[in-house]
Write a protein that binds this DNA or RNA. Structure first.
Lengths: 120, 120
DNA sequence: ACAAGTACTTACCCCAAAGTATGTATGACA
DNA sequence: TGTCATACATACTTTGGGGTAAGTACTTGT
């Protein structure tokens, strides 16, 4: 999981900001190129790995797995694997993950307004 | 402003995601280590450069200026300079910038809940 | 003469996130 | 026997955000 150099200003500032700033806390959970999209696709219900993959043509498998693991570690989703071959793995949002819907909605509202795409 | 290599997957994906994902759009405007903090300080009213600087002891001047310029370019705040010496420059949120308050609130609500710090 | 305050600017470096490419285990099916 | 499908893993490279350090312009105070 990529060891962290403790004695760097970058990480010092990062920690300060994470502890002090709820916005940055949220960013650390759902930020990056792909995590919001993954969450979006799961908001409509559980999906298996291959379904998420098909829904996101541009993401590489490495990035997809990496972010799914991260989201699982952050307790935003749950991974369930059936012991069959070929593998059957589903991903489901936790309550915490579902709670992000209001956040995402607020962001979407502002975004569409800001992009001048709102018509009411 | 740091020339961009057009033919890279990194930027291709970035653009795709920016156009498709309102969450990423918002992130691009208020993401990073410092922008949310700057916005937070300006939500309570206009401030001059030196006031913001004092309110954020850990930020470097380069980062502060850089983000203020970016926020200005994104029309989230307005810079006003009085032609005096020593310089007197104030930064004020635009309506668009003020509109972020609801977004920030939604994020803060979720963050505090998720951090288990909520007591109601 | 020179230090101090304000609001910047610029050149350079580091590192973590993102991307590339390839490999793995297992069983079904042809 | 070997190819296909699923759900990963891993070594390596690239990219851009962030940090360091130093300098600039202009004027007021000592």
């Amino acid at each position: 999981m990529t060891a962290i150099k403790e004695n760097s200003t970058y990480n010092a500032n990062r920690e300060i900001v994470l502890n002090e700033c709820p916005v940055t806390y949220v960013m650390s959970k759902i930020g990056g190129h792909w995590k919001p999209i993954i969450l979006y696709h799961l908001l409509s219900g559980s999906k298996r790995y291959s379904e998420i993959k098909k829904a996101m043509p541009h993401i590489t498998e490495k990035m997809l797995i990496q972010h799914l693991k991260q989201l699982e570690a952050d307790k935003l989703l749950i991974r369930e694997a059936k012991p069959v071959v070929p593998p059957y793995v589903t991903y489901t949002l936790t309550e915490s993950g579902k709670g992000l819907q209001t956040v995402i909605s607020a962001m979407a509202d502002w975004a569409f307004k800001d992009m001048g795409k709102v018509r009411i």
